[in-house]
C-alpha cells in the first residue's frame, strides 16, 4: 500500500492585489499554505495507511519555497516528501503541470510501486480542478473524481470501491488499483500531527528533483512551451456603469422605505412585478 499525495502551495488569502499600473499580481507578503482542498486527500491517504499499513509520499511541483508545505505534510505523518522544482517548469498550465507530475510519480513508482495517487478537488488559486484528471490520463490510471468516501480497499484482489459525487446523487464505483482519486472537501478532518512527527518534519531530508531527476527529457512538454493556454490579459472586474438607485424617504421610517422600494421596483422591473403577481395568484 503506497499512496502518493499531490499538494500545491498556495497564497493564504485570495485577497491578492493587482498592481494598478502594471496589472501584475502582487504576492509579496502573502503567507503560503497547503491548498486547503489537498488536506482532505492527505488525511484520506494517512487513514488508509493507519488501516492497511504502507507508506505515504507527498509531492509538489513548485518553487523552492514550497518546501515549507512539504514539511508541514511530514508533520501530519507523511513518510516521504519530494519537491519537483526547476526553472524550466515556469509558466506551466494544467496540461504541462500534469505532464511533469505524472513523470515524477512514474519515477517514484520505479522504486516504490504506487497503489493510489491522490489529489485535492481543486486549488484555491488556479482553481481549475484539471490537474487530477490530467495526471490520471498521462499515467493511464483509472480516474475517480469527487470521491466522498472510500468504502473498501482490497489489496489482495487489487480493487477499490468508492462513493463519487455526481450532479443529482452519488455513484458507487468499483475499479482496479492503481488508480487516481480526487478527494471531495469536507469528507474528513485533518489530524493534529504527533510530536514525534513534528520533530521529524524539521529534520527530515528533503528530496529535491529537477527536470532530469523527475525523468523528463522532452522540454517542449513542460513549462510555457508545453502549455497550450496563454493568459492574454489580467484585470480587475469593472464596476457596473450605474450605481445603485438609493431609496430614501423623508420620514426615514423603515416601513415607509419598504413601501417606497416596492413601488419603484414595479416601475423599473416588470419581470420582478410579474414574478410577484405569479406568487400572489
Amino acid at each position: 500500500m503506497h499512496s502518493v499525495v499531490c499538494i500545491k502551495q498556495v497564497p493564504d488569502s485570495a485577497q491578492i492585489r493587482v498592481h494598478p499600473v502594471t496589472n501584475t499580481i502582487m504576492r509579496q507578503g502573502v503567507p503560503a499554505i497547503i491548498n486547503p482542498y489537498d488536506l482532505f486527500a492527505l488525511e484520506e491517504a494517512l487513514r488508509l495507511k493507519d488501516k492497511h499499513g504502507g507508506r505515504v509520499t507527498v509531492i509538489t511541483m513548485g518553487p523552492p519555497q514550497a518546501e515549507a508545505a512539504l514539511r508541514k505534510a511530514l508533520s501530519y505523518g507523511a513518510d516521504e516528501i519530494i519537491l519537483v522544482t526547476d526553472k524550466a517548469f515556469a509558466g506551466a498550465d494544467t496540461l504541462a503541470t500534469s505532464f511533469a507530475l505524472a513523470s515524477a510519480i512514474r519515477k517514484i513508482d520505479e522504486t516504490h510501486p504506487v497503489t493510489l495517487v491522490f489529489t485535492g478537488k481543486q486549488t484555491i488559486d488556479g482553481d481549475t480542478a484539471q490537474v487530477g484528471p490530467g495526471i490520471a490520463k498521462r499515467m493511464e490510471l483509472q480516474l475517480l473524481t469527487y470521491v466522498s468516501r472510500i468504502n473498501e480497499l482490497d489489496g489482495a484482489s487489487g480493487t477499490i470501491t468508492v462513493e463519487r459525487r455526481a450532479e443529482g446523487g452519488v455513484q458507487l464505483l468499483k475499479t482496479a488499483l492503481p488508480c487516481l482519486v480526487t478527494m471531495l472537501e469536507g469528507t474528513n478532518e485533518m489530524r493534529r500531527g504527533s510530536l514525534p512527527d513534528q520533530l521529524r518534519a524539521a529534520r527530515h531530508e528533503l528530496t529535491r528533483w529537477d527536470r532530469v531527476a523527475a525523468g523528463i527529457e522532452d522540454v517542449t512538454k513542460i513549462g510555457l512551451k508545453g502549455s497550450p493556454t496563454v493568459v492574454n490579459k489580467v484585470f480587475t472586474p469593472s464596476p457596473r456603469a450605474e450605481k445603485a438607485e438609493m431609496v430614501t424617504v423623508d420620514s426615514g421610517r423603515p416601513a415607509d422605505l419598504a413601501v417606497e422600494l416596492i413601488a419603484r421596483l414595479g416601475q423599473r422591473f416588470p419581470v420582478v412585478e410579474a414574478e410577484l403577481a405569479r406568487r400572489a395568484g
Binding site: 438609493m246 421610517r253 416601513a255 422605505l257 416596492i262 410577484l276
Partner: peptide
C-alpha cells in the same frame, strides 16, 4: 451599492421586518 440596482442604507434588523410586512401587503 456599486452593483446593486436598489440600495437602502439602514439597519437590516429593522428594514427586513418592514420589507416582510410591505411585501405581505403587496401580495
Amino acid at each position: 451599492f456599486d452593483f446593486a440596482h436598489y440600495g437602502i442604507v439602514g439597519d437590516a434588523l429593522q428594514i427586513l421586518p418592514a420589507l416582510t410586512e410591505a411585501f405581505r401587503q403587496k401580495l
